[in-house]
């Protein structure tokens, strides 16, 4: 199946659109269906599609592992930050008096962090599975 021309062609066309769709799901996670986890899974699935493209660039797993660790630390810091600005742990950093359009950006940043973290973790898992099967 890996040698099929049609699948390779469709995978090439589909790959950027899947990345775009995943980014859309992550960024608009607080006003439409979606969120960090769902969009991250879509971004990781886009990596699976590239298995059908023979001349893909080889990726280093260590980068994904490092990104996941750092983004988890960032998530913890974002959770702890609200203790100093609002007074409670693990809530919105921006205070409730600000308008909704400004407070919304905290959710966007949080969604982005969770989405990139989940996508790098799942990409790592998929890549290791493919490597183990070969």
């Amino acid at each position: 199946m890996k040698d099929s021309d049609s699948i390779r062609c469709i995978a090439r066309i589909l790959y950027p659109f899947m990345l775009l769709f995943g980014c859309y799901i992550i960024i608009f996670g607080d006003v439409s269906p979606g969120g960090g986890f769902q969009g991250g899974v879509i971004l990781a699935t886009a990596r699976l599609v590239t298995l059908y493209i023979p001349e893909k660039a080889d990726i280093d797993v260590e980068i994904f592992n490092l990104a996941e660790k750092l983004l988890f630390l960032l998530l913890l810091l974002l959770g702890l930050l609200s203790l100093f600005t609002v007074g409670g742990l693990f809530t919105n950093v921006l205070s409730a008096e600000l308008p909704h359009e400004i407070r919304r950006w905290f959710l966007v940043i949080l969604n982005l962090a969770i989405g990139i973290k989940v996508s790098s973790g799942l990409t790592l898992i998929f890549t290791q599975f493919v490597k183990e099967g070969e």
Binding site: F37, V118, L122, I125, F129, E132
Partner: peptide, 14 residues
Amino acid sequence: AIVIGASVTALTLM
């Protein structure tokens, strides 16, 4: 639950 289930399945399969 879905995310945790995916993690558990990945670890078990490996």
